[in-house]
């Protein structure tokens, strides 16, 4: 079973649209933009004259900021449109809202929405490129891409190599545990497919009430409920955010019980192999899924994830709006302002 059909590379709706080659392409282009970020003026003219709109129907600070920073560093014009809650409640259909915004002349729409498939719907109605910035429980493709980027970057650095010289072989057989609320997680639904496409072996760790009803067709090696036995055997421990603001608490007896079973406490962090990575998509519930002292350990690469987010989103926008896949990114980023 696969996700929704790909759309000829015009949109980024699901990591399944990219496949392993597409993911590699994004990571390769992101290498160049990570380098741009280190410049005194971290800006390139690649998308000058293009307009990127962030259309957010859900509260988000970091993702929106990350996309808007990415677009500005590519010299695109950026507009923000907030839909307070559901457009239906205002008597305007989502289609009307989207067509109104794109009528202003838009090259890319970055869509965040509390309902699964929102970006797919938007993509049906507009000529602009659509980037899914999170749709309900479904997917958050750029999060998965920046996570893959971060893993490759850290593994390369440890091997004393330039990340740009490291291919996707670093994911081969990489053991990744994804821990927490898989059922309601768009981060998991993108991350699992992206990591598996690159060759990683994925284990899901969650209480039964936070696992999806069905894992049929999921590229997952196994599911486990005992985190302690999993931790010594993984290279990456990826903790999901417990979305308390969305009533996930009703799936659990108590936060205390969740933390006791699935939180990465200081004791549990000690079970990890010395070089294992700890990742989290943020924002972290310190003391719930991750203990304060663990969040700040060097093996925790949470802030790197955030930093790489901008470069990866630059890569996505560049590939969708720039010269397209296969473009000579080096030539374009070389003309820094």
């Amino acid at each position: 079973m696969s996700g929704a059909p790909a759309d000829g590379g015009r949109h980024l709706l699901s990591v399944s649209d990219l496949g392993s080659e597409g993911i590699e392409e994004v990571l390769r282009v992101a290498d160049a933009f990570v380098e741009v970020a280190r410049r005194p003026i971290p800006k390139v003219p690649a998308l000058r004259g293009r307009t990127v709109v962030t259309l957010f129907a859900e509260e988000s600070t970091r993702t929106r900021l990350s996309f808007e920073t990415a677009a500005r560093r590519l010299s695109a014009d950026v507009m923000s449109f907030s839909m307070a809650g559901s457009s239906a409640k205002k008597g305007e259909s989502l289609r009307d809202t989207v067509e109104t915004v794109t009528a202003m002349g838009v090259d890319a729409l970055v869509v965040r929405h509390p309902c699964a498939g929102a970006a797919h719907q938007v993509a049906r109605w507009v000529d602009a490129a659509v980037v899914n910035a999170g749709d309900g429980w479904h997917e958050h493709p750029t999060q998965a891409l920046l996570d893959c980027y971060t893993i490759r970057q850290v593994l390369a650095e440890r091997a004393g190599r330039d990340p740009a010289s490291v291919g996707m072989e670093c994911f081969d057989g990489l053991r990744v545990a994804i821990v927490g609320d898989i059922r309601h997680s768009r981060v998991a639904r993108s991350g699992i497919w992206a990591l598996a496409a690159l060759g990683a072996r994925v284990t899901l760790v969650a209480p039964g009430s936070l696992l999806p009803t069905s894992l049929q067709g999921w590229p997952v090696e196994r599911t486990a409920s005992d985190l302690d036995t999993v931790l010594p055997e993984v290279d990456v421990c990826y903790l999901l955010r417990l979305q308390l603001e969305r009533g996930v608490g009703a799936h659990l007896p108590s936060l205390r019980e969740y933390t006791a079973g699935y939180g990465l406490t200081a004791r549990r962090a000690g079970l990890l192999a010395e070089d294992a990575l700890v990742m989290h998509p943020g924002p972290m519930n310190r003391g719930v899924e991750i203990a304060d002292e663990v969040a700040d350990l060097p093996r925790s690469v949470v802030l790197r994830q955030v930093a790489n987010g901008v470069a990866v989103r630059m890569a996505v926008l560049f590939l969708l709006l720039g010269a397209g896949v296969g473009a000579d990114v080096g030539a374009l980023v070389g003309e820094g302002e």
Binding site: M1, G3, A4, A116, G117, D135, G136, W137, H138, E139, R186, R189, P212, T213, S214, L215, Q216, G217, W218
Partner: peptide, 15 residues
């Protein structure tokens, strides 16, 4: 329908 498709698509299901 709650099942393999809803799980993959991230759509809340009706069992």
């Amino acid at each position: 329908h709650e099942g393999a498709w809803s799980s993959r698509l991230g759509v809340p299901g009706v069992p």
